[in-house]
Each structure stands twice: as C-alpha cells, then as structure tokens.
C-alpha cells in the first residue's frame, strides 16, 4: 500500500479506538478490549505466517505461556500487572525461540505439523507441574480497575491498556516489516533457495521471526490473563491457536491493517456473528442455534467461503477495491493445465 494511504489508515484506526468506547456499552467495551488483545497476537503471527509463509497452529500456546508468566508473577510474587507484560513477552519469545531453533530448519509441512503439537503438549505440561501452574484448577488474578491514580471500571481499564499496548506494537510491527529484517523475511517466503544464495540465513531469519511472533503472543496472553482474571489449562485450547491462524488468513496474511479485521473476526465470530448468522437461518429451518458447536460450524464455513472467493483475505478485498486491480492474490497461484476431462 502507498505510505500516504497507510498513514491515513492508522489515523482512522486511532480515531476509532478513541471513539469506540464512548459509543459502546460496558460489555461491548470489554469485547473490544479483546479485539485489541487479539490484534497483538495476530500482528505477531502475521510476521511469521504473512511474511515468511510458514503457518503455525500453535501460537495460542505462546499466549498461554505469557498468560501464565503474568499470573505467576502477579499472584505468587506480587508484581504490578503492567510490569509483567514485557516479562510475559520475553518468556514466550524465549519459548518460541527454543521451539523455533530446531523447528524452523524443517521444510514447510513439517513445521506446520510440529506446531500443531504445541497447544496440547502445553496443556499436558501445565497439568504435569501443578505446584507451579495451579494444575487443572489454574490460578485466579485480582480484577483491576484503578492504577496510577486513574480510577475507572475494569472493562474500560482493560480496554485502554490493551489498545495502547496494541497500537504501540502495531507501530513496532510496521517498523519491522518495512526494515531490513522485513525484506529478509519476504525473500525467504518468495524463494528460500534464492534467499540462501544472496546470503540470507533462512533458518536464522525464520527462527527470529518465530521468536518475535511468540513475543507478541506472550504480551497478548499477559493482557488476556489480566482481562479474564483467571487462567487454567482450558483457557488456551488448540481451538484458539487455530482461530489465530484463521484470523491472520481472513485478515489477509502479510497485511498489518488486515489484522484489525482478523482480530474483529476472532473476537466476534464465535459469540456474536456466528449466532446472528444462524438466527437468520433458524427463521427458515427449525434448528437450535444456541447448541454447542453451532458457531464453530458457521466460522468454518465462513473460512471456507473466504478461501474460495478471496484467498487474499479482507486486506486483499480492500486492496482490490482501492487499486481497482483484480488479481492481487499472491496466494491464488494459477496453474497452466486445463481442467480435468469430465467424461
């Protein structure tokens, strides 16, 4: 996107963040706080998936690492909850580096497979060491509503904390993407062998990307723990990891602005949009739209439809509208062979 348009987009985002809580109910403000938290996680995952083309089905677990770091520091060591956030990021980032160090040396499919094992392994570890993590019961955090002489209710406090962190990290992500490191990342995605030939250490670059993405998820996880005020092994299930990847893809992998759409999707599809879509159908058919699993079906179908119609995600759609050019979809690679004989 042209820089001028990007600045404009960011100004619109900041304006929306300032205005939104004024127009929202307390509950809606709380939901929007989670949009900010998911945005942080998606920005991180986007650096891995969008820029290097590696998919990860395990980043929810790095949110979990951050969340547990924050919780343990606050509950067991009496830290100020905001000060735990950098630590949450660093701990998750180190976990990401430790995993990425071997894993990013594998070719694409192997890495995706290995990441799929992270969330369930993480849950296993949490249950195995209960004296440290609280085991299946988890741990409870105090609810926060005033700090630095600033008194408000928990929803509003969480909203502002999340979004200020999110906007700062958005700018940082933008600097990363535009800089030398971002170029190295993109060269890895476009051609691993060519990148190696021009002196880029592909495994090294991917490992660092993995670490950065895990750092982002760790910060998001720390905020998540502060917002929900409890953590247990079920707080970060494999579904969350999948949802994060889906958010990146639907938002438009590789696009920072697209992650805002992705974060909205991640927060609202399961509790708000999914049931609303189902209600439309339920007027025609007699289906129980509040049944467990129903919103999962809706979100899976939405994902599938997006893959068919707009493989470059929401960002791709916007770009198409703005630039008027059709085939920007880097993902929709055309093959040259005519379709199969249907005889």
């Amino acid at each position: 996107m042209k820089p001028r348009l990007a600045y404009l987009g960011f100004v619109v985002l900041v304006a929306a963040v300032v205005i939104a809580p004024l127009l929202s109910s307390n509950y809606r403000t709380f939901q929007l706080a989670f949009v900010g938290i998911y945005l942080i996680a998606l920005l991180g995952l986007n650096i891995l998936t969008g820029l290097t083309g590696q998919i990860s089905l395990g980043h929810g677990a790095f949110m979990g690492v951050g969340a547990y770091a924050t919780t343990i520091l606050v509950v067991d060591h009496g830290w100020n909850n905001l000060l735990t956030l950098p630590v949450a990021g660093v701990v998750a980032g180190l976990a990401g580096l430790a995993f990425g160090l071997p894993a990013t040396r594998f070719a694409g499919p192997y890495l995706a497979l290995a990441t799929f094992a992270i969330p369930l392994s993480f849950i296993g570890l949490l249950k195995r060491f209960p004296h440290f993590t609280g085991g299946t019961l988890g741990k409870q955090l105090p609810s926060v509503h005033s700090q630095f002489g600033f008194h408000t209710n928990p929803s509003v406090w969480v909203y502002w904390t999340s979004w200020i962190v999110a906007l700062v990290m958005f700018v940082v992500a933008w600097l990363i993407v535009r800089g030398r490191f971002g170029r190295a990342l993109r060269s890895v995605r476009d051609s691993e062998i060519a990148a190696t030939a021009s002196g880029v250490s592909t495994a090294g670059v991917k490992t660092v990307a993995f670490g950065i993405s895990a750092f982002y998820c760790g910060v998001a996880g720390g905020l998540f723990a502060i917002a929900v005020t409890y953590v247990n092994p079920d707080t970060f299930p494999i579904d969350l990891s999948i949802l994060l990847l889906v958010g990146v893809v639907l938002g438009g992998a590789g696009s920072l602005g697209g992650m805002v759409f992705g974060a909205l999707f991640v927060e609202f599809i399961r509790i708000t949009w999914g049931p609303a879509l189902l209600d439309l159908f339920s007027q025609v058919h007699h289906i129980n739209t509040r049944a467990p699993g129903s919103s999962l079906v809706v979100y899976g179908v939405v994902l599938l439809l997006v893959l068919y119609v707009a493989p470059a995600g929401a960002a791709g759609l916007v770009r198409r509208l703005v630039t008027g050019k059709a085939a920007v979809a880097a993902w929709a690679k055309q093959s040259q062979m005519p379709a199969e004989d249907q005889a």
Binding site: L57, L245, S294, L296, Y299, G300, V301, L303, L304, L307
Partner: peptide
C-alpha cells in the same frame, strides 16, 4: 483446517 473446525462443531 476449515474442515477440521466444521466437523468438530458439527459433531
């Protein structure tokens, strides 16, 4: 992955 989500929800 979409299929995974759909089948899980459907069940």
């Amino acid at each position: 992955i979409a299929l995974l989500v759909i089948l899980n929800g459907l069940a």
